[in-house]
Amino acid sequence: MADAADGAGLASALVELHELTRRLRLDCPWDREQTARTIVAHTVEEAYEVADAALAGDSEKLLDELGDLLFQTYFLALLLEERGEGDLEAVARGIHAKLVRRHPHVFGEAEANTAGRVRERWEAIKTEQEGRSGVFHDVPEALPGLLLARKVQRRAASVGFDWPDVAGPLAKIHEEISEVEEELARIGRPAPETEADPRLFAEIGDLLFTVVNLARVVNVDPELALRVTTGRFVARVEGAEYLAAAAGLVWSELDLDAQEAWYERSKADLGSTDAG
């Protein structure tokens, strides 16, 4: 009975949100003006805010941000309904059917005892049951660059085009760094705010792509890893600026050696558990 009560509460909450979405679409001037093209930027922003909350381990913020993202789903589904091209029920039933179809090891007789085997089965099901063709079918080009690279690499790996071990991408990174160094030796450091040298541009791209490949092979999400590192850098620089100000100094007026010294103090104050 407890499960039934919980289910009733969930159903009620979801229906109430559906009704609220409809009300806003009718009565709010801003919501009335929105289209899929105008609202999707907010959807992407909310997804990143969910990621930030999850990475921070902030459960209260995660609850809040998940609500914002859920509303985006409701709103976009309502836009589909207005065009007669689907609705929230179709969205829910569609993902339910897809998840059942892609988990035959849970809902059928297939076997998949590891996460890697599950991913292999997913790719096979997409080809065999969903009519998708080509190695890179349905890869959204609007993905951030790091995630786009990882997704493309995963697709290539799904058909066997992959490094046999970690040594491969590591060696490739060293090779790409050498090529970047060769280009920098040729052109020197370019002036700020000028167009990048085409060959250096290409070599930097190759290096980044290879670093993403290493991250993929060792099960590191490159987008999340970079976001965490960026956040750590921001915290350390802000800490260094604060420490310098407390000593009566202006951070922006310090030379590089002094800034580095305050940065190291900030790093120590924030703790040595973080990498880098």
Score class of each variant (00 low, 15 high):
4 A>E: 14
5 A>C: 07
7 G>C: 11
11 A>S: 14
11 A>R: 15
14 L>R: 11
15 V>L: 15
16 E>R: 15
17 L>G: 06
19 E>I: 13
20 L>M: 11
21 T>D: 14
23 R>Y: 10
24 L>C: 12
28 C>S: 15
29 P>D: 13
31 D>F: 13
32 R>F: 07
33 E>V: 05
34 Q>M: 09
35 T>I: 04
35 T>C: 06
42 H>L: 13
48 Y>V: 10
48 Y>R: 11
50 V>Y: 03
51 A>T: 06
53 A>N: 08
54 A>R: 08
55 L>G: 12
56 A>V: 05
58 D>Y: 09
58 D>H: 11
60 E>K: 08
61 K>Q: 15
63 L>T: 08
64 D>R: 13
65 E>M: 09
67 G>C: 10
68 D>Q: 11
70 L>Q: 11
71 F>D: 08
71 F>P: 06
72 Q>E: 11
74 Y>F: 15
74 Y>N: 02
74 Y>H: 10
77 A>M: 03
79 L>N: 03
81 E>G: 02
84 G>K: 08
85 E>L: 14
91 V>D: 03
94 G>C: 05
94 G>V: 03
98 K>A: 14
99 L>H: 09
101 R>G: 04
103 H>E: 04
105 H>Q: 15
112 A>M: 09
112 A>H: 06
114 T>S: 15
115 A>H: 03
115 A>Y: 05
120 E>N: 04
120 E>Q: 12
126 K>P: 00
128 E>L: 12
130 E>S: 00
134 G>N: 06
149 A>T: 14
150 R>H: 01
152 V>T: 13
153 Q>M: 10
154 R>K: 11
154 R>P: 02
154 R>F: 06
154 R>A: 12
157 A>P: 01
159 V>L: 06
162 D>H: 05
162 D>G: 01
163 W>H: 14
164 P>D: 04
165 D>A: 06
168 G>R: 09
170 L>S: 05
170 L>I: 14
171 A>T: 15
178 S>I: 11
184 L>W: 00
186 R>L: 07
187 I>R: 06
188 G>E: 05
189 R>C: 06
192 P>D: 12
192 P>L: 08
198 P>I: 08
199 R>T: 08
211 V>E: 03
215 A>E: 01
218 V>I: 15
221 D>N: 13
221 D>G: 00
222 P>S: 01
222 P>H: 01
223 E>V: 07
226 L>V: 13
227 R>W: 02
228 V>K: 07
230 T>G: 04
230 T>W: 09
234 V>D: 05
234 V>S: 02
235 A>V: 07
238 E>G: 00
239 G>V: 02
240 A>L: 08
241 E>T: 10
242 Y>Q: 12
245 A>F: 08
245 A>V: 04
246 A>D: 12
247 A>I: 00
249 L>F: 12
253 E>G: 04
255 D>F: 02
255 D>H: 01
255 D>I: 03
256 L>I: 07
263 Y>H: 13
265 R>E: 10
265 R>I: 02
267 K>H: 11
268 A>Y: 03
269 D>P: 01
270 L>G: 15
274 D>A: 15
